[in-house]
């Protein structure tokens, strides 16, 4: 059974440029219409970068400037390359940076965890969910992560247990909890349904 209405489920309220920041980085897990999805980009709030995972190995993360020169764009082959660049960047950052992340939930909280490890926390970072509802699931029995889960029941990639995906979310792990569905009566499983589209 999917236990719903659990209060550890994060709520998201959209992204709005924080003009108390001196410079801004907006991170997206796929190409999106950022100007439409982030409120307050006009007039330009100061140096602003938009980083996007495009999922193609022919791009580089070189800076591209828009026509007015104010917004810098960088394209990334993958999330790991974006996070690697972000780590290098945050290691050199000063006060005044504001981070914004938009995308699937696992992406958002991976960004948040990385930012927190560099002391970027609280009001300095905003997250907003967009795209698929699919989940990263943490197996409470073996601690393996099963990615991109769309169904109420999923086989754990670590121990093979059939996990019920609970609505209990850990920001630290950037994952939902998975608990063996048939631990009481082996094989007694509900029908598999796609519920995280």
């Amino acid at each position: 059974m999917l236990i719903s209405g659990i209060h550890s489920r994060p709520k998201y309220a959209g992204l709005r440029v924080d003009r108390s920041g001196t410079h801004h980085i907006i991170l997206s897990d796929t190409p999106r219409d950022i100007a439409r999805m982030v409120e307050g980009l006009e007039p330009a709030p100061g140096p602003t970068e938009v980083w996007t995972v495009v999922g193609a190995c022919t791009v580089t993360a070189a800076e591209e400037r828009g026509p007015d020169g104010s917004v810098v764009r960088r394209a990334f082959r993958s999330r790991p390359l974006m996070f690697d660049m972000l780590g290098h960047r945050l290691a050199r950052e000063s006060m005044g940076l504001r981070l914004y992340a938009i995308g699937e939930e696992a992406f958002l909280w991976d960004v948040a965890a990385l930012a927190r490890s560099f002391g970027v926390d609280g009001d300095e970072i905003q997250l907003d969910h967009a795209g698929s509802e699919r989940r990263r699931v943490f197996c409470v029995h073996c601690r393996a992560m099963t990615e991109n889960v769309r169904t109420n029941i999923v086989a754990c990639v670590g121990c093979g247990a059939h996990l019920t995906v609970r609505d209990h979310f850990s920001k630290r792990l950037a994952a939902f909890m998975g608990v063996q569905a048939d631990a009481e009566v082996r094989g007694d499983l509900p029908p598999v349904e796609e519920i995280f589209r």
């Binding site: 209060h7 550890s8 943490f138 209990h168 850990s170 630290r172």
Partner: peptide
């Protein structure tokens, strides 16, 4: 689970409790 809950705020770690919220 401590491993799952460590670092959570008060309402987050009580998230699964029904009715009381």
């Amino acid at each position: 689970s401590l491993e799952f809950n460590i670092g959570m705020s008060f309402h987050e770690w009580h998230g699964p409790v029904p009715l009381a919220h």
